[in-house]
Design a binder for these strands. Sequence first.
RNA 1: GCGCCUUUAACUCAGCUGGAUAGAGUAACUGCCUUCUAAGCAGUAAGCCAUUGGUUCGAGUCCAAUAAGGCGCGCCA
Length: 591
Amino acid sequence: MTNMMETAQAQLRELLMNALGALTAEGKIAAEPLPAFKIEVPADKSHGDFASNIAMASAKALHMAPRAIAELLVGAIGFEGTYFEKAEIAGPGFMNFFLRKTWFADTVQAVLTDTDNYGKSEGGKGKKALVEFVSANPTGPMHVGNARGAALGDGISALLEWTGWHTEREFYVNDAGNQVAKFGKSLSLRYLQLCSEKGQAVMKAHANDADAIAEAIYGEDGNSADFPMPDDVYLGRDIIVHAANYYFQNGDALAKLDEDARQKALADYALPLNIEGLERDLKSYRVVYDNWFRESKLHADGSVDRIIDELTRRGFTYEQEGAVWFKAEQFGADKDFVLRRANGIPTYIVPDIAYHMDKLVTRNFDKAINVLGADHHGYVPRLKAALKALDVDTDRLDVVLMQMVMLFRNGQPAKLSKRSGKAIGLVTLLEDIPLDAARFFFNMREANSHFEFDLDLAVEKSSQNPVYYVQYAHARICSILRTLKEEGLYVDSTPIRELPIGEVPQEIELIRHIAAFPAEIAAAAKVYDPSRVTKYAMELSSLFHKFYDACSVKNAETPELREARTAICRAAAQTLRNAMAILKIDCPEKM
RNA sequence: GCGCCUUUAACUCAGCUGGAUAGAGUAACUGCCUUCUAAGCAGUAAGCCAUUGGUUCGAGUCCAAUAAGGCGCGCCA
């Protein structure tokens, strides 16, 4: 796929190297090894399209003033047949280079040729990445942090795909261990409450409505005087709903069983329902996973036990107070930690180690990327220490830490959904704000910054809302093209290089930014940061609106100019669509 | 106590691998639609880039210390 920015940069670098070579051959400059120099896009447009610090960087080695070097270079460069028409020397010795119009025309042509693939690159070709994100506990509904994780993880996955990686999205299902036991216990308690006299009264009062029953039993805080709950269980309404539904289907038979059997039966009933629910809710958020990897599999096939055995075999464990410890300090972690408790049950990290061995060894992904809440940052060095002890190159595991989300409404922290009045989770959030807004907003800030989510702004249909600003730009372009077609003014028959493209500053600015798209995507993928895509889209939209204001397409001075601007519009719309496609946000043709 | 993150305009944030006068949006005020979507554009205002030192041709950007805020350091996950 075409990257005109890169093409121009490579050409410029070659021109400079050739000029240097020629000057050295002529003896005009000393034959010294020169330090690396940079070619970059200056912030100030009057400084040209590209600038190089080559003269300043080489000053020391050549024992010459930067400006003198620059002057020699400018004289030695042959611009014929290239994308560049001239160079200027500025400031302390910067060299500023100016592009010819053909470069702008070729950029527009590249977008129209590549269409939906414009911006893709192949840096990751032949390599496999596994992106694990959300992995919410299946014992309850997803919270707002999961919504951010979902948008972020999905965006990172898309960026990797756009840069050539074979990418799989994965959800790690914690369907084993302590929290499942706690889940069963919670369900059992609620179930027994429903079977009690008071519970039966509530059931009768609310007929077969599980939600209404849950509301009544839940009371103020899930721990009412009539239906008290201990400290170490899940209190949520969803637990009561499960218990009630089970009761509707199977009656009170479980009340007569012993506690363990009842907990297991209820967990076996409710857990699959929750997992289906997670899948459904994420799908409605436009997140579709390739794999749902179950923790229980790692227990069932012996992987978990094998981790402890293998670390022991290698001499990296010891026993203390009846527990098995891993010598993590030896592998760079802050302190040793327990692998197997005195009661014989492995700690949570052992299945995690087994899981990552599965990712990196069994399935042999080149990269495993985990999107985690920042509160897990202490856990990362421990996991890496264990992987290192098992001979895995820990650079293959990249962790993207994500800071907390704070929801705001009317400038105040918001806890409850406006519409349903329930706690704001992923599902209730989408009741309150449009899907596109959620996906856009959660990708506006980089992962590692605290995020204040303004709920009022997200629903606002105005210029203040960045999602609408971007979508409006696209709809506006579509409207222009529609009008041209209706009036028979839409023409795309002339080769783009023959059109007058890049006549005014607003056109140039817009095309320059369009040309930067492929590099921006590659850079965003490299640092796992989809927020660069939202920023790019906002900037592109802004440049289009400015172009729109300055350059009429329909009423262009000449038919050639109209055709040129039509092509620019099409290229801008295409680029905007591609950026939004990465984030899975719609680009409506009308608003 | 140890470790990680954050600190840029009144508010929310950009500032890519150090580069030429530090940028947006919001809020305030002023212009621009008989002409392709005014959900837009243009203009006016605001900043010891937390503090102090260091590295160099050059620091918001790199290093060190300090301060304030957030988080983590379990035989919880």
